[in-house]
Amino acid sequence: MSDETIMVKIRGLSKRFGRIQALDGVDLDIERGRIIGLLGANGAGKSTLLRHIIGLYLPDSGSCTTLGCDASRLGPAELARIGYVHQEGELIDWMTAAQLIRYVSVYYPNWNKELEQRLVGEYEISLKARVGSLSPGQRQRLAILIAICFEPELLILDEPAAALDPLARAQFLDLLLQLIQDQKRTIVISSHILSDVEKVIDHALIMKAGKIVADASFDELREKYSRVRLTSLAGPLPEPLDFANVLECRRNQSEATLIVRDLSPELIEAAAARIHCQAAVQPLPLEDIYRLVVA
């Protein structure tokens, strides 16, 4: 993999806050054009990792290179290519929404006015309202708007939809899907709403206690874990079931539902045939995959 295709390169990154080890030797490469879902429980280190990528935190040890530059030395040229939406939705409270948009747009020569106007309409942003008086959902929409209207190459979204209502979340997902059309754009999205994330991501990173426990394409994960529904064709199911790599099993006399790992559909078919069963293989939703990986 050439360095030009790698947007973010992290090696042995560790960060400690007092007694808490927030990041513990993280290694990661983020390739250009990827839509990455960063998943993990509260306190797993997702936000800390994202903040290292944009240089807001400095590592205790290890290195983080963003857009070919050490993250601690990111200058205006590199930062003008990065968009960031954070979970707190912190903006400049004393400005009106219109003033904030005007203020932020001055920083970026490639500000997309057309996209701005479209999003203001779609998100129903009240331009005359003071930012400090907006509801959390409206603030979050405004934060999203100012993070994407300059069309960044690397878009980092830290819990962007946490404060949004279902309708706004759907709009936001539509917007993300439109952004994905640009093949050069890289998006890293951290979220707890896995059902939303799985619609847009092509790569998943799962974190636990400051470490990355899974780093694979979403397709690989879906192939790795699958749900098998077995129906007996002759009499009761045997005890035990002759299946390898079973993670979970629920069964009765004639039917069983298994969650298996690293079994191809062919192997599952063969194993089912051996015990005179019919097998129906289904992919697992991201939520279940996440639960299995973290467990």
Binding site: L79, A80, E90
Partner: peptide, 12 residues
């Protein structure tokens, strides 16, 4: 110190 990311690095 600001979570609103604008293109100004640490030196700036």
């Amino acid at each position: 110190r600001s979570n609103l990311l604008l293109p100004a690095g640490r030196r700036e």
